[in-house]
Simulated scan of single mutants.
Amino acid sequence: MNATRIIGLILIVAGIAALGTGGFSFTKETHQVKLGPIELSVKEKQNVNFPIWAGVAAIVVGGALLVFGGRKG
């Protein structure tokens, strides 16, 4: 299996994962005020959504790399 087919397989798996999860969330801590030894911070939960078209495009491109990746010339 050459590198092109491996990349195609990775793209297919990533596209399926993107469609399955829809996105992810993380907590971001920001420092709002620092007054001497006292520091106030705020924790914000942020969501990152994967577009459906990006997941589908990754699957299509990965499939094309699997099919046409091994051909030479």
Rank of each mutant, 00 (worst) to 15 (best):
A58M: 11
L35R: 12
N47A: 15
T27P: 00
G63R: 10
L19T: 00
R71F: 15
T21N: 08
V61G: 02
T4H: 08
R71Q: 14
H31A: 09
S25P: 02
G62W: 03
N49T: 10
I16V: 15
L9I: 14
G22D: 03
A64S: 12
K28T: 09
Q46F: 15
G69E: 05
L40H: 05
G8D: 03
V67G: 07
A18E: 03
K43L: 13
R71K: 15
L40Q: 02
L9P: 07
V48D: 01
V67L: 14
V60W: 10
F26I: 06
A3N: 11
L66Y: 12
L66I: 10
T27K: 02
A64D: 11
T27I: 06
A54R: 00
K43R: 10
T4E: 07
E29F: 01
N47I: 15
H31L: 11
L9E: 10
A64M: 10
P37Q: 12
I38Y: 13
F50H: 00
F50Q: 01
N2G: 15
A57E: 04
T4Y: 07
T21V: 03
S41L: 09
G36C: 02
F24C: 10
K45E: 14
A3S: 14
E39P: 00
G23M: 02
A3P: 08
T27E: 01
V48M: 10
L11G: 12
K34G: 05
S41I: 09
V56Q: 04
H31T: 11
A14G: 06
L66K: 10
K34S: 09
N47H: 15
L11F: 13
R5P: 09
P37V: 13
I10M: 14
K43A: 14
G70L: 09
E29L: 03
G23S: 03
G69D: 04
E44Y: 13
E39C: 04
